[in-house]
């Protein structure tokens, strides 16, 4: 670059959060709450166009920022829903906020699930714990476009029945015939009549059309290789299996370096990768 002393003024500061109002807070579990935000200003709302699987940087001045997956569907415009576990300074500060309070959001960032490419196929979604949050965005998006998809199967593993997120919605869906939802818990209680054990055990109970199915996986880091192994046993193609990675992030725009995974950055190259890509990323899985 040759120096230009009379450069055009900077219009956009990608580090500057947009103010957003909390419009709803729902307690999901003792640790997780579902927050709904509305960006302030028509222009900001209209500019916020996202894909399932993308994330935002949640910004609370005086505390800091944290990357959070969007859990609402792109088909629902005008608000942004984040399912947040109280697990650090920023998420703790958010948990102490009330409806009507203002926080900051930056984004959407990253590469989401290939929704258009997935159309016309069966979908197999596998979530562990809080990993359901980004997948819920995809599930709801599929729901709003249901006729474009084949069979939709959701396998969702939790530690205990009390840890199951979005339970009210899933309880409704358990009785629908266009979503095959199978819940499993590691530690059942006396009320539990569903499956028990790791989510991978549920693969014994499902049929998969190997060439006609797209997979999507999100959960704790340890889960991926086992779930992928099950999908590969079902003969699914590596590039039809999508995973969403959690990594430490500061900027969300490929500069701060924290989210390096193999030779890529989770914030701009992911957080959603297909398994062929992920296989080529050192230390990814």
């Amino acid at each position: 670059m040759t120096t230009h002393l009379s450069a055009a003024p900077i219009v956009v500061n990608p580090y500057r959060p947009s103010p957003a109002r909390i419009t709803s807070i729902i307690d999901l579990t003792p640790m997780e709450k579902l927050f709904e935000f509305r960006l302030i200003g028509d222009a900001a709302r209209e500019a916020f166009d996202f894909q399932a699987g993308q994330f935002v940087e949640l910004s609370i001045f005086g505390v800091g920022e944290a990357p959070i997956s969007i859990s609402s569907a792109p088909s629902k415009q005008g608000f942004i829903e984040l399912c947040v576990r109280n697990s650090g300074d920023v998420t703790g500060a958010l948990h102490s906020k009330k409806c009507g309070d203002i926080v900051g959001l930056r984004g959407p960032f990253g590469r989401g699930f290939p929704f258009q490419e997935m159309k016309g196929h069966d979908i197999l979604l596998v979530a562990g714990g809080l990993g359901i949050a980004p997948l819920k965005s995809l599930i709801n998006h599929i729901h709003d476009d249901r006729h474009d998809f084949g069979k939709v199967t959701i396998l969702y593993g939790s530690r205990t029945p009390a840890d199951i997120l979005f339970r009210a919605q899933f309880d409704m869906w358990r009785h629908r015939d266009d979503f095959d939802l199978i819940l499993s818990v590691d530690q059942p209680d006396e009320t539990w009549d569903g499956a028990v054990g790791l989510v991978t055990k549920l693969f014994d109970t499902i049929d998969v059309d190997p060439k006609g199915t797209y997979g999507a996986i999100c959960g704790p880091p340890v889960m991926y290789k086992y779930v992928i192994a099950e999908m590969r046993k079902k003969a699914m193609d590596a590039d039809h299996i999508y995973v969403s990675f959690e990594r430490r992030m500061k900027c969300g725009i490929g500069k701060c370096g924290h989210c390096g995974v193999g030779h890529q950055y989770a914030c701009i190259d992911g957080p959603v990768f297909n398994y062929w890509e992920a296989m080529n990323l050192q230390e990814a899985i």
């Binding site: 505390v63 800091g64 500061k250 701060c256 370096g257």
Partner: peptide, 9 residues
Amino acid sequence: YCFDVHDVL
């Protein structure tokens, strides 16, 4: 070029 970001009151 890696950086950290933090808030100072």
